[in-house]
Design a protein around this nucleic acid. Sequence first.
DNA 1: ACCATAACTGAACACCCGTTCACCCGCAAC
DNA 2: GTTGCGGGTGAACGGGTGTTCAGTTATGGT
Lengths: 195, 195
Amino acid sequence: MPRTLDIQEKIQELRLFYRREKRLPSYREMLDVFGYRSTNAVSGLVKKLVEHGFLAKDAAGHLSPTAQLSGTVRMLGFVQAGFPSPAEEAAADVLSLDEYMIRRPEATFLLTVNGDSMVDAGIHPGDIVLVEKGSQPRNGQIVVAQVDGEWTLKYYVKDSVGVRLDPANRKYQFIRPRQSLVIGGVVRGVIRRYE
Amino acid sequence: MPRTLDIQEKIQELRLFYRREKRLPSYREMLDVFGYRSTNAVSGLVKKLVEHGFLAKDAAGHLSPTAQLSGTVRMLGFVQAGFPSPAEEAAADVLSLDEYMIRRPEATFLLTVNGDSMVDAGIHPGDIVLVEKGSQPRNGQIVVAQVDGEWTLKYYVKDSVGVRLDPANRKYQFIRPRQSLVIGGVVRGVIRRYE
DNA sequence: ACCATAACTGAACACCCGTTCACCCGCAAC
DNA sequence: GTTGCGGGTGAACGGGTGTTCAGTTATGGT
C-alpha cells in the first residue's frame, strides 16, 4: 500500500491561513502552507478537500471555503457530557455563528435590550437580540413593537379581542395597543457576551 | 465639478457577491458586479474601498474583505430607540457574530445546556454556551466544571474555605467539591435561536 | 455657458494562476 | 524481497490576473 496522508493536519494549516488572511491561498502559497514543492501535489490535495466538503469549486474553477472550513467554533455535545477527547474534538462539526444564527442577513439587525420586561424568557438588560424585519409574527413569538409611540420587546399574542403584547416578568402587565401598533420585527435569536 | 460616485451602492453589490460566492470577485468579474466596462475603473474603485476600510490589500497585492464588508448583520441602537430610517440603517456598523463573540477560535467550543441550574442568569435549557478552554476562571464567572465526576454549569467562587460552585436557581444549593474538581472552561457567551 | 476635475474607456503589458504531463519515491501487503 | 499504488516532484503551457497609460466623458460649481 502507498503512503498515507493526514488530511486533518492539512485542513488545520489551511484554516489557520484563512483565519489570518481571510482568503484562500493560491496554489503557490499552498506550497508553503502544506509543505509541498510541486503545485501538482497541491492540485491533488485540493481535489480531495473538495471531495471531503472543505472547499467548493464553481463552474469556472474558482475555489471558495465551505462552512466546514471557514467555521470558527466546534460544536460539541451537552454540558453533562463534558469535554471529549482531542480525537473527538477534531471530528466535531465546525460551524459559523453567522450561518447558524442568521437566515436573512439583509433583513436582520441587532438591538441592545435595555428593559427587564423579558427576564423570565432569559432576555436580560444588555443582551443583544437578533431581529428580522418584514415577516408576520406568529402567536408566542417575541417581537420588537411600537405600541402607542413607544418601542418595546414583548411576546406577540393575537386572540379574539385583538393583538396583545405580553411581558415575561410578573412585575408588568400585558398591553393592548390603544391607537397604533407597529411590528418592527420578530426576534430570531439572543446573544450575550461576558466581559 | 466632476461626476460623483455612490460608494454605498457599490459596496452593497460587492457584499451580495461575497455572500453568494464566499470569495471576492476578480477585476473582470467586478466589471459585471459594478457595471463597468474597463478594469481601470475597477482598479480606481478598489483603491477607494481600501481607503474606506472595506477591503484590505496585503504586501503582495492580494485583496481580502474586512469585517466591514464580510460582516453579516447591522448593529443598531437600543430597543427603546426602535428602528431607524433606511439612511441610518445603511450607515450602521456591520459586524460579524463570529468576530464579536469569539476571541480564541481554536480554544472555543459550543455546548448545549440541559439543566435549569442557571436560569436566573438567563441561561435556559436548550441554550448554547460558548466555552473557552485553558484560562483560569475569576470569581463570579460561569464555568463548565466536573465536580466529583459530574459535569455542570455553575458560577465559580473561590473563598477562604476553597472553591465553591454556585447555581443561579434557588431550587439548588451550592456545591463544594469533595474529591475532584476539573474546570473545563470559562463561559464567554450565550446564544439562543428561536425556531 | 464654460471650466475643472473626477469617473470612466480601451488597450497593452508583465506576471501569476491552475492544469497537465511524464516520472520518481516509499510504504504496506503479499 | 518484490510489487502495487497513492503521494509527491519538476517543468511547461495557455489563459487569466492586476496594473498602467493615454485619452474621453460627464457633471457640479462658478
